[in-house]
Design a protein around this nucleic acid. Structure first.
Length: 318
DNA sequence: AATTGGTCCAACCGCTTGTCC
DNA sequence: GGGACAAGCGGTTGGACCAAT
């Protein structure tokens, strides 16, 4: 499947060409390459990736090795389809973070940014596309939409702060540009509706086009709810407290897939509320150090604090 | 059975960011 | 300060798969 692996260098395991320079392979990884990388990583842990590639006897660039490890070989990766809870969490996080796939992946233990990105670009987009045919409401009276669910309750100063944070093209920024253009209307408290969501609505101007997914969640999230993903007020989601803790469907930690020598496992407990791992993909722990915390992460934490207003999110902000 | 078009997803590419000297 | 290098990240590509025709 996928790209065909380059023809293996049968006669010369080192795959060196005649002038002595190592020709780096591209394309699909062979099982042998996977074995080499896996065993090397488990035995030696991560060093410089170019060293990993060289020392593991792989004719791959370090970058390729890194990608293969992160996206495929890591022992703590989940496999298989996204669960409804994961889908719901992705939707929520994307409404807050936009296309910051790594940030989203950091909150979905065992999932990679690539996986989430692919999931989003295929499944979710398709679903929204299928359900985004203009409804009568879009051309008529403004219909409350659930978008930017975490952002909506931020005050103006917080929004401005985030506005200065990044030139990202995420839905967050796009949502802000929308708010600039159309004003962030006073948001009625509709927490009793929308399955008990403690969110507020953005009002969609009657003339506001039904922009595609590239423009974020505006006007789309509600459709997902209509599609059932957000349905069921009793649905309970556990948002990992920004730690590299695998969560099984029942919310318990998943440690059985971990190898003790896995250098990427960040040991953590739910009690370590100040410990923040914003980069689960490689397991590098980032700790909250007060003012040293990056602005972007502060924003997210603030947003996630806000997310505690969602009764359906069993989020433990302490 | 053959063809075609859509979907999925692993992997690559290019850019940005961080770190070291 | 700035150049070099490594790592991280998001966007894109390309090929296998599969259903429809």
């Amino acid at each position: 499947m996928m790209r065909k692996p380059d023809p293996p260098a049968k006669s010369n395991p080192t795959n060196n060409n005649s002038n002595g320079a190592t020709k780096l392979r591209k394309g699909l990884w062979s099982p042998e390459e996977d074995d080499k990388l896996m065993s090397y990583m488990l035995n030696n842990g991560q060093g410089c990736w170019s060293d990993v590639a060289r020392n593991a006897g792989l004719q791959r660039c370090g970058k390729s090795c890194r990608l293969r490890w992160i996206n495929y070989l890591r022992p703590d990766l989940k496999r298989g389809a996204f669960s409804p809870k994961e889908e719901e969490l992705i939707l929520h996080l994307h409404s807050i973070l936009g296309n910051r796939w790594s940030q989203i992946a950091a909150r979905l233990p065992g999932r990679t940014d690539n996986e989430i990105k692919n999931f989003w670009n295929s499944t979710v987009k398709k679903r929204l596309k299928n359900s985004s045919s203009p409804s009568p409401n879009h051309s008529g009276s403004p219909e409350p939409k659930v978008g930017m669910v975490g952002l909506a309750s931020l005050n103006e100063q917080e929004i401005k702060t985030m506005c200065m944070d990044s030139a990202s093209s995420s839905s967050l920024m796009q949502g802000l540009s929308i708010s600039n253009q159309y004003d962030l209307l006073p948001l009625p408290d509709v927490s009793s509706g929308m399955n008990g969501l403690g969110s507020r609505y953005f009002h969609q101007p009657a003339s506001f086009p039904q922009v595609g997914f590239g423009n974020g969640y505006y006007g789309s999230h509600g459709m997902m709810m209509e599609g059932g993903l957000m349905g069921g007020g009793g649905c309970e989601i556990f948002i990992p407290p920004l730690e590299s803790t695998s969560i099984e469907e029942n919310g318990t930690s998943n440690n059985n897939a971990r190898n003790i020598s896995d250098p990427y496992h960040v040991h953590s407990s739910n009690n370590d509320v100040n410990k923040i791992n914003s980069d689960n993909a490689v397991g590098s722990a980032i700790y909250w150090q007060g003012g040293n915390m990056k602005m972007e992460e502060w924003d997210f934490e603030d947003l996630m604090k806000d997310a505690t207003s969602f009764p359906f999110l069993d989020f433990h902000a302490e």
